[in-house]
């Protein structure tokens, strides 16, 4: 008999977040709607000092992803971690987030999502940015790459204005590619 397919996406807060639990549940609902999976909230990382670079005063996201994948319970299909610390990968000054392409884990940082290009960023805008980045990074774990369609959530944004401009949905191409990946996962 086949083992029960993994069908849970874990939203995993790292440390204290400036987000209320109502928002995290909204995020879970959106994740379930887009990826067709159950979504749970569960912290996995107790401390992240191992990934901190003292010279740059930033955290190395690739190391965090490796640890998340190792700690994720077996029944979990994908993990999305959310942190407030600034993330980097070597040679790049910073990243908004990182994901294992077609792999298990992804992480986003809220550190630079407070950036404002006009007036003070409103809580609604801030939360919308987090939601977009979260879906975007999770999309990578399902094998989706950056999309040239500027309104697609998988579009890579060079500026925070571009994040605000893109929608919270996948374009039709990315929907087809996601559905292919879902079929592949179901047949595994």
């Amino acid at each position: 008999m086949n083992a029960r397919p993994k069908n849970t996406i874990l939203v995993s807060p790292v440390g204290d977040l400036d987000l209320d639990s109502e928002f995290l549940h909204e995020l879970c609902d959106k994740i379930s709607e887009i990826f067709g999976c159950e979504c749970e909230i569960m912290p996995l990382l107790k401390e992240i000092d191992f990934a901190r670079d003292p010279v740059r005063d930033q955290h190395h996201s690739t190391l965090l992803l490796e640890r998340l994948s190792a700690l994720a319970p077996h029944r979990v299909l994908k993990v999305l971690a959310i942190t407030t610390v600034d993330l980097f990968i070597p040679v790049l000054t910073y990243v908004y987030g990182e994901a294992q392409l077609g792999g298990k884990s992804s992480i986003i940082s809220t550190y630079r999502l407070q950036e404002t290009h006009s007036a003070k960023v409103t809580p609604a805008t801030y939360q919308c940015r987090i939601l977009k980045e979260a879906i975007h990074e999770l999309g990578h774990t399902f094998g989706l790459r950056h999309c040239p369609n500027e309104s697609c959530i998988m579009h890579y944004c060079r500026k925070i204005q571009d994040v605000d401009r893109k929608s919270t949905e996948l374009c039709r191409y990315c929907k087809v590619l996601l559905s292919d990946e879902m079929k592949r996962l179901a047949s595994e």
């Binding site: 190395h60 996201s61 690739t62 990968i89 070597p90 040679v91 790049l92 990243v95 990182e98 994901a99 294992q100 392409l101 990578h140 790459r145 950056h146 890579y156």
Partner: peptide, 17 residues
């Protein structure tokens, strides 16, 4: 020659398609 550079930069570029 640094594995971590190859892996992280490689991952970033792969996500870019």
């Amino acid at each position: 020659d640094e594995l971590i550079v190859r892996e992280s930069l490689g991952g970033w570029l792969e996500r870019d398609g």
